[in-house]
């Protein structure tokens, strides 16, 4: 095939025929594929290998030193057998159950309100709600941390003035909503914009027809808008979920402020601790593999449940 012959597919696809093999696609893909191999595939392979190694004492020096030996699946049994690692997934799930629905629910609510012609101050609100996206998670945790601690908290200050006592943001079960709040605060704006831009893409005639039929704004939202932005909801949900599984910085930043958050509070904190504080990278590698596999399974399950609407447009 020469590069000037227009391609002619035997079975015509829905859109115009695509170009058949030239060197061009490979040249265009080369950098991406090289980086993908170097920083995704090879690390995965190496992590799999390392997770079968273990650091064990060999006779050398005054105390003996630790050296790498093959230990089979010992790291996996160690990680999976640890009740605290499993409990970490439980804490993660509880946190996610608060953070993900709230983020998406508020994002959808604000997006619908922005799309509603009768709302005022829309431009200001859109920009304001979106702003936290620009604040790094570590910094957001610090700011909220100060606002949670009883003696620096403006909220507790207020409730104390009212004679209600301080609000124990960081004690007991309150730690879950308090942490989730940081994620919600940082995530609502971005998701809102995604949903909002999807809403703007819906042709206005659809609403006019509904209004003529006597539908109110809320019925229009419920019957027309939400079903039409469902793919946007699925994909934002997916990313919120992946984001939840990766939560690390927020609890790490808050942990010095409260005894509720242990060094192994969520799986990624434990993986970091194993690898870097305890100097046991093979154990950390095994933890990473388990977490990655878990994420893939959960994501695929979500996509299946939602009938793959999110990636449906791209075959």
């Amino acid at each position: 095939m020469t590069s000037t012959t227009p391609a002619a597919d035997p079975a015509p696809p829905p859109r115009a025929p695509r170009r058949r093999a030239t060197r061009a696609p490979f040249v265009l893909l080369a950098p991406a594929l090289a980086l993908f191999a170097a920083f995704v595939l090879i690390p995965i392979g190496y992590a799999l290998f390392l997770s079968t190694q273990g650091l064990r004492i060999v006779d050398e020096g005054v105390f003996g030193i630790r050296d790498e030996v093959f230990v089979g699946l010992a790291n996996y049994t160690q990680v999976l057998g640890d009740a605290d690692f499993r409990a970490g997934f439980g804490r993660l799930a509880l946190y996610g159950l608060i953070a993900v629905p709230l983020t998406l629910g508020l994002a959808l609510l604000f997006a619908l309100l922005l799309d509603n012609a009768s709302s005022r101050a829309r431009r200001f609100s859109r920009v304001a709600i979106f702003l936290p996206y620009a604040v790094p998670g570590v910094v957001a945790s610090l700011m909220w941390g100060f606002m949670y601690l009883p003696s620096t908290s403006p909220f507790s200050h207020l409730t104390e003035r009212l004679g209600l006592g301080g609000i124990p943001f960081l004690d007991g079960g309150a730690i879950y909503p308090s942490l989730a709040n940081i994620a919600v605060w940082g995530g609502v704006g971005f998701n809102m914009i995604i949903i909002y831009t999807s809403l703007r893409g819906i042709p206005g005639e659809l609403y006019d027809a509904a209004r003529i039929d006597g539908c109110g704004e809320w019925r229009i939202a419920w019957r027309i808008k939400i079903p039409l932005v469902a793919p946007a909801l699925v994909i934002t949900g997916l990313f919120a979920l992946i984001g939840t599984i990766q939560v690390y910085g927020e609890p790490t930043m808050l942990s010095p402020m409260t005894s509720e958050i242990s060094q192994t509070w969520v799986p990624l904190m434990r993986i970091y601790r194993d690898g870097f504080v305890r100097d046991d990278l093979p154990l950390a590698a095994a933890g990473s593999v388990i977490l990655a596999v878990g994420t893939l399974l959960v994501s695929l399950a979500l996509l299946r449940v939602t009938q793959r609407r999110a990636f449906g447009g791209v075959r």
Binding site: V40, Y46, L50, Y248, I271, A285, S288, L291, A292, T295
Partner: peptide
Amino acid sequence: AGVLLPGMTLAIPQYLI
């Protein structure tokens, strides 16, 4: 599949490389 893989879980293997 790479989209679904949390970037954070790759951080440690990337460090090893």
